[in-house]
Amino acid sequence: MKEQLEALQSEALEKIKAAENLKELQEIKVAYLGKKGSLTKVLKGMGKLTKEERPVVGEIANRVRESITEALENKSELLEKKALEEQLEKEAIDITLPGRPVNVGGPHLLTSIIEEIEDLFIGMGFEVREGPEVETDYFNFEALNLPQGHPARDMQDTFYITNELLLRTHTSPVQARTMREYKGEKPVKMICSGKVYRRDTDDATHSHQFTQIEGLFVDKNVRMSDLKGILDTFAKKMFGQERKIRLRPSYFPFTEPSVEMDISCKVCNGDGCSVCKGTGWIEILGAGMVHPNVLEMAGYDPDIYSGFAFGMGPERIAMLKYGVNDIRQFYTNDIRFLKQYHKA
């Protein structure tokens, strides 16, 4: 019997070795170890053995079973691995084909610029305020020291709706509204942006609708040097640390003194080139110390409070920063234009 068992073992191991796939292997397993398998059959013949022979043959039989089982397992693992490899090979794809397109939109360039400026001033403790686009003559002009008949009203040709109502010509009425809301009792530190309108014929440099962003800071003991410091901080963050600013006297009815701020030209670094028209400087914004009449009308005592205000045009900044050469581009919404600035 011993010989029989050993023959069975070597036969089985031979077959396992030759097996080419898992199915074959399973058949081998059934053929030898199954209920009707060869090994089982042999073992069933053990009853005929003597008492002495039984443990000896039993041990051999167990060894044979273990050896076949182990061989089966090893082979099975091997075949599984091989099968997986084959499957993975079959699953290989052409990775040079394009991916499934994802539609990605983006912000308008003016929004990007406005939000960048807003965030910058929020970081300096300013709040963001808003106001109506249809304004009263009072808030658009009178409250800003532009009474009826003031020659500077001509600087801003206005779309009137009625004698009293108009499309705001600047975002400055939001300043007057905010100060009035704060009743002259607490400091004002605000920035606001939005659409404004002027009677201009649309061309490459004029638009009857455009945007403005401006800020106001009113507190006790606000100095003109503070305005210079804040504007310098702003200009360096917005246009680069190496930029210098300069203030030039100017005129706005709602500020006194009034200034215009230039930054040193990025193209020539101040030496003068065609971009800065040879001056080395580029005009960025208007600013000034809040006119005492404006403070007073809004309920702030100009003997106690002082402040500064500044305002600029996001279109102009976009044109300078990104070289946009026609203001109408901002409102035509040509997809080829809009997409260029989605990462701006």
């Binding site: 807003e118 929020i122 210079k228």
Partner: peptide
């Protein structure tokens, strides 16, 4: 100020308590 020269004004930052800015 203008005859003194705006270039000659110092750069300062506003004194006083600062408020937190936020949307």
């Amino acid at each position: 100020a203008r005859i003194y020269g705006y270039d000659n004004l110092p750069f300062t930052l506003p004194a006083g308590a600062s408020q937190a800015g936020a949307l």
